[in-house]
Design a binder for these strands. Structure first.
Lengths: 153, 153
DNA sequence: AATGATAATGATAATCATTTTCAATTATAA
DNA sequence: TTATAATTGAAAATGATTATCATTATCATT
């Protein structure tokens, strides 16, 4: 579940926080490092458990507060699952969709810009003026499929 | 926000509850009547406020419990919005998608069976085996568009 | 219609994730 | 280095949901 940290993305996020008037603190660094480096969706407690290793003394409350700011700056986005609706992932540029592995929670963005006309049509047929659409795919990622195949042998 | 009750659907739900071994009570009747008759997504408190008119003395707790059973029987389904993830709507037959009016919360189902191959492709391109997809459209319904046009005059 | 086993109810208390409060600490500009 | 204002973490508060439990109501059986 550990990921190599993407230094560049992390620095981008810190710059974004700073240029919005927020201060850079150890606590925020730790949360940013976890979120910018993760390919997996994670909830506040999971983020806290990762981040507190990097910044001992970190409080769960600060994780919530930092997530609020990162969400406000559109650096992270909330992910909705059928049960848990309080997980987060690094946001994508512009309007993208998510595909989520139901085994390991890995998530990847993909753009479906070509879907917009189709979505408009689907709405128009029902008398709706479509303003937005929300699409998520669920499945098994490569790594999990291979792991399952190994076990099956 | 009030709707004429669809007697037939309501009876279907009551039959379904009964044939699953659940008893038919006044409290359940009231919740079923509200949910089976509503074209709008609604959360437990909204359901309670409607249902308590039909069954005075109804407790909010019973609304939660009844919703659990209706969800278990796939008669209602949970609706996820960006903020509120605890609203419900009468379920559709089979795999369908929702289009939701962002003004009045009216929701309609539509089938997008023809979308499945597209979804699979989108996933395969990223090394995922797609098992399921979620699609929701957001927009303005006919009624709200006309109401807005009236006001604009 | 009456009975009785037991499912269901509603009031209350408990739980748990999230928010708020607040005094102490820390980042940043001057 | 200093001033100041944002940030922090601990603790308390909040609010939605769930569990408990004595009472009530349903419904198959009589």
């Amino acid at each position: 579940m550990e990921e190599a940290t993407d230094k560049t993305l992390m620095q981008t996020w810190l710059d974004s926080l700073q240029s919005s008037g927020y201060r850079i603190t150890g606590a925020r660094r730790a949360v940013v490092e976890v979120m910018a480096g993760s390919k997996f969706i994670c909830n506040p407690m999971e983020i806290y458990l990762q981040a507190v290793k990097r910044h001992p003394g970190l409080g769960l409350v600060t994780v919530y507060r930092t997530l609020d700011k990162l969400e406000e700056l559109e650096l992270v986005e909330r992910v909705h699952l059928s049960k848990d609706c309080h997980s987060y992932i690094a946001a994508a540029e512009g309007h993208q969709h998510l595909i989520i592995c139901t085994r390991c929670n890995r998530a990847e963005h993909f753009s479906g810009d070509d879907l917009s006309p189709l979505m408009s049509d689907l709405g128009t047929n029902r008398g709706f003026t479509v303003e937005d659409h929300w699409l998520q795919l669920f499945g098994i990622c490569d790594a999990c499929r291979q792991a399952a195949a190994e076990e099956g042998k």
